[in-house]
């Protein structure tokens, strides 16, 4: 059940780490491009000649796309790494909660603590009812933390997806594709 509810933190962390590494590689490539452009500009101003063709450059919209990619890949990677960390902590909390729920003779249905079906002795039923509120409150707090983690990741990625879609569309429009 923990795997179903909590997914796999390591696979989320791997994607996050890869996004950040690749954002850093793109940033290095962007800086090398800026260096090459300024070297070209210096040579151009020193050796200006109307007979020489201008050095072609990346259009501004492509530089914007490159900048957007660097920023958004890094931000999404960081959000996924945070999510993976929180997911691992929440999975651990769920394991502890599951064990205590089981000891109290109760069961977990998703992140809700419920009484199991079937007959119980008076003592067992009384014990369950005494334990249920505390365990249910813990399960609610955990569900709330899980919800917040998912919401934060969803907001970051949804915004990044929209920004990247617009930047890519601008670049493609300029290419006539």
């Amino acid at each position: 059940m923990i795997a179903t509810l909590m997914g796999d933190p390591s696979s989320c962390s791997q994607l996050g780490g890869d996004l950040r590494t690749r954002a850093a590689t793109l940033l290095t490539a962007r800086e090398a491009l800026a260096d090459a452009r300024s070297a070209g500009s210096r040579a151009g101003s020193r050796l200006a000649s109307p007979d020489l063709p201008d050095l072609p450059d990346l259009p501004e919209r492509d530089q914007r796309l490159l900048d957007t990619l660097v920023d958004r890949l890094d931000a999404a990677g960081a959000a996924l790494q945070r999510y993976a960390q929180e997911l691992a902590e929440q999975a651990e909390e769920l394991r502890r909660l599951e064990a205590e729920v089981s000891r109290a003779g109760l069961t977990l249905d998703g992140l809700q603590v419920v009484e199991p079906w079937g007959l119980a002795t008076v003592d067992a039923a009384s014990h369950r009812r005494a334990e249920l509120p505390g365990l249910a409150a813990r399960a609610e707090r955990l569900a709330s933390r899980v919800g917040r983690s998912r919401g934060a990741l969803q907001r970051t990625l949804t915004e990044a997806t929209g920004v990247l879609a617009r930047a890519a569309a601008d670049t493609r429009a300029s290419l006539g594709r």
């Binding site: 795997a3 179903t4 997914g7 696979s11 994607l15 890869d18 996924l80 998912r150 990741l153 990625l157």
Partner: peptide, 14 residues
């Protein structure tokens, strides 16, 4: 990459 977020909606957004 095949990330498993543990949630269908979050997974689709990723």
């Amino acid at each position: 990459h095949v990330p498993d977020t543990g949630d269908h909606v979050t997974g689709r957004i990723v």
